[in-house]
Design a protein around this nucleic acid. Structure first.
Lengths: 201, 201
DNA sequence: TCGGTTCTGGCAGACTCTGCCACGATAGTC
DNA sequence: GACTATCGTGGCAGAGTCTGCCAGAACCGA
């Protein structure tokens, strides 16, 4: 048993990538809901049964192979919290994600366009956000001041709000591609919240 | 052709209500994903095919007959905006919803418990929130100050954030049923946002 | 009571996803 | 180079949601 990565694993990885490519292309052409798994499989020259050995669900073929924009966000947040307040820490943490996205803007634009063709996909995307939120809340909670009884509620509000800012900025940027900078939109979104009732620049 | 509501429509309404009751009961006992539509139908003494004539989807049997907590929220928001700032207007608008919920707390608790048994349901619920947000954004946007180019982005952020506050307070209240007041949780959540970086009481 | 509308149930089908099993290819071993 | 064990693959059957279609039953107004 050698330590080398077997030829089979490489083949597997290659096929996985090809499936993701084929699927994304078909989704762009016909829409997500209008593209059955059977079509993806036959276009790629495999059986539908095999497709489900590479991707557990049809959604996973879209979201499964995303470039790692996130990294260890809880750790990153933790680090910022040693220097900054809760909100600014969330801001800087998500700026980091935004910077990573910018390096592959083309791919992300295609993805977002596909996601917007389907209600079920939007819902699935939100589900992912919630998982991310669950991982950030325990990290943020200790940094919240005030009564302990409300600490958890506050932490949840702030984390969800931060992710909302990110999502909104992301969509806005995707809609005005080229015209604005993702980071600028993100900063605007984050600046809006603490000034919620005046909402000036 | 009389103006009266035909006996058939009343029968239809009654059956619809019975289906919703049966479904909610079964969901509580076994969980949402573990309760096929066939079981709901047979328990209610109808065919599965007929079930789908009363509710377009399985989800609709849960969410379709909610008591109207919302009313005309855009109009309500519009009204508050004549006197208050954007954030406080959103706050008061959602306070109104929270008050309505309180009058039927039992029903809502049951619902939330069922929703938490299933991932797919949570996602569906978020989808509804987004629809509500879409209706509030155009109302809020004109009240936002600052550069026009960013007005839409800001409005989206604020509306989504407000709904997030509502949702978080709602969940928190449901988890601590009896211990806290829904309105108090809501106020705390809304107060957290403008003080995002100090987060004091 | 009659004629037309409406509701119902059953059938077949699409689509996602999951077990199961047999077949073939591959990898490591002798 | 042949042998065996492991792995990937494809086909089959099935659950579950949801839709179109059609024939029969129930209902309403005249």
């Amino acid at each position: 048993m050698g330590e080398s990565i077997g030829i089979r694993e490489r083949a597997r990885g290659a096929l996985r990538g090809e499936l993701a490519d084929v699927a994304l292309r078909l989704f762009e052409e016909r829409g997500y809901d209008e593209t059955p798994v059977d079509d993806i499989a036959s276009t790629a020259g495999i059986s539908p049964r095999t497709f489900y050995r590479y991707f557990g669900t049809k959604e996973e073929v879209l979201f499964g192979d995303l470039p790692p924009t996130s990294g260890d966000l809880p750790a990153l947040l933790q680090d910022h919290l040693t220097r900054l307040g809760p909100w600014e820490s969330l801001h800087q943490t998500l700026r980091h994600v935004a910077e990573n996205i910018r390096t592959e803007r083309g791919r992300w634009s295609r993805l977002l366009r596909v996601v917007n063709t389907s209600d079920s996909l939007r819902a699935g995307h939100l589900e992912q956000q919630m998982n991310l939120a669950q991982s950030l809340i325990p990290t943020l909670a200790p940094a919240i001041q005030g009564q302990a009884a409300w600490r958890d509620l506050r932490a949840r509000v702030l984390v969800y709000t931060a992710l909302t800012c990110f999502d909104t900025a992301f969509s806005h940027w995707a809609e005005h591609e080229g015209d604005i900078e993702m980071l600028e939109a993100l900063d605007i979104a984050f600046a809006t919240v603490p000034n919620a009732d005046s909402a000036q620049s």
